[in-house]
Design a protein around this nucleic acid. Structure first.
Length: 151
DNA sequence: GCCAACGTTGGC
DNA sequence: GCCAACGTTGGC
């Protein structure tokens, strides 16, 4: 089981979940907000990430996994301190979970997504993660079937 | 397209 | 160090 859980936002026209599936793996770089960066830096290999489509869709569409821990963002100027991770797709949610559905769910009232609406990289608790999977009619074992081999 | 929330910048 | 101006994000 992953150590920690996160949620990243992506505008579908820039980088939809389908593109992550197509690429098989991607570098999550370009984050230029200190709090979001600190969240990136707190990630580690094996962490699971809810993939949220902002603006268009406004829903969690899938799960990704951190496959390379934080390292200096290759797209940042060398004298600046930004971080990136690599992630790969794990699975789509059988049913996307909309922002509205999360707002309406009492168990998700303290979710960082709902409180820090503008942050692009957010922490998610294990309970919240499992709740979103449940609302997406996606079983945890299904997610874990594709768990990485133990190092 | 509008606008609220909020982070960042820069003048003082 | 304060705070006004400004820019960006993202929901509606």
């Amino acid at each position: 089981m992953a150590n920690a859980f996160w949620l990243v936002k992506s505008e579908p026209y820039k980088y939809p979940y389908a593109q992550l599936e197509k690429d098989g793996r991607t570098v999550w770089d370009g984050v230029r907000n200190y709090e979001a960066r600190n969240n990136i830096k707190a990630m580690s290999e094996g962490d699971l990430v809810l993939f949220y489509h902002s603006n268009e869709g406004k829903e969690v569409v899938g799960v990704a996994r951190v496959v390379r821990g934080p390292y200096p963002d290759p797209t940042a100027p060398p004298d600046e301190d930004w971080a990136a991770v690599d992630m790969e797709p794990v699975c789509r949610l059988r049913t996307p979970v909309s922002l509205g559905a999360m707002k309406a769910e009492p168990r998700l009232q303290s979710m960082a997504l709902l409180r820090r609406a503008r942050l692009s990289v957010l922490p998610v608790t294990r309970k919240e993660f499992l709740q979103v999977l449940k609302m997406g009619h996606t079983e945890l074992p299904e997610v874990m079937q594709t768990a990485p081999p133990t190092p």
